[in-house]
Amino acid sequence: MVFELRKYILKRLIATVPLLVVVSFACFLMIQTMSSDPAEVVLRVRQTPIVTDKAIEEMRIELGLDKPFLTRYAYWLVDSFKFDFGVSYVNPARTVASELKRCLPATLQLALASVVFVFMVSVVLGTLAAYYKDSWIDKSIRFLLFNFSAMPSYWFALLAIWFFSLYLGWLPTGGRGGFETLILPVLTLSLGQIAIYVRLIRNNMIEVLKEDFVFYAKARGIGPFRLLTQHVLKNSLQSSITALGMSIPQLIAGTLVVETVFSWPGIGRLSIEAILNRDYPIIQAYVWLIALLLILFNLLFDILHAINDPRIRN
């Protein structure tokens, strides 16, 4: 059993490598199709007042853009296995790896806090909505979530700042600091996800509540609180946990708006600036990183399933 699982994990991990190579190549190829010459954009972004053709030519050589496409990709690929993603075009004093290292913790903090928050809120609301199916509680939960999740997060974020920071004078408007700075960004980031998980949990739970064991549990005289928490909930969370495997990388990749509005120094802001400034090495590393996270989280949750269900391993 243990041996089989190990073999399964190893197999999947090995399969990750070619997948990453394919993703990185596709990304490398797509970046080439972006408009604008990166050497010229770099000079503009570094605010060189007059960008002469000679300066562009020098910059192209400095950035190694004069080499053929495949050579550049080969170099990148070899270095990427050493976690060396080169130097930022725009800030030559910073390596891409150091930029990711600087920004990733802030984003991970935001994403993981959101996952915890989403899960806690969804379990409570989902359970309430299922247990009181079609009552006013269920309807108002669904009504509110439907509305909140339909709000563009930029708009919601500004309303939240206005209400909690300005009107109530309760939380800072932005910046990354203590726990209080985490509240509004997490709330904004979680909103769309909460709606998904509440529905998932509610629907599963409604199905589970119809099962015979619930009927017999009730007959045994088990109270509703114990029934829900100890029996029904456990059986209703399977699909939510699977979905979580995809939600975590999605949350990490989806922090752009939140990071901008709340001045949060994470990889969302890093990536959008890199795209606008044609900072190829950062874009490339960012895509690679998100792909890696998706693959790893997917794998992690597959393993969890495999432990649960030996049939998957074959």
């Binding site: 500004l158 206005w162 920071s165 300005l166 800072p172 408007t173 910046g175 709340f262 001045s263």
Partner: peptide, 18 residues
């Protein structure tokens, strides 16, 4: 000097006294 990239958020930070 604080870095606040968003125009609206910047104005609210001013109103809040930050």
């Amino acid at each position: 000097v604080r870095v606040i990239p968003d125009n609206q958020a910047r104005v609210m930070a001013l109103e809040k006294g930050e």
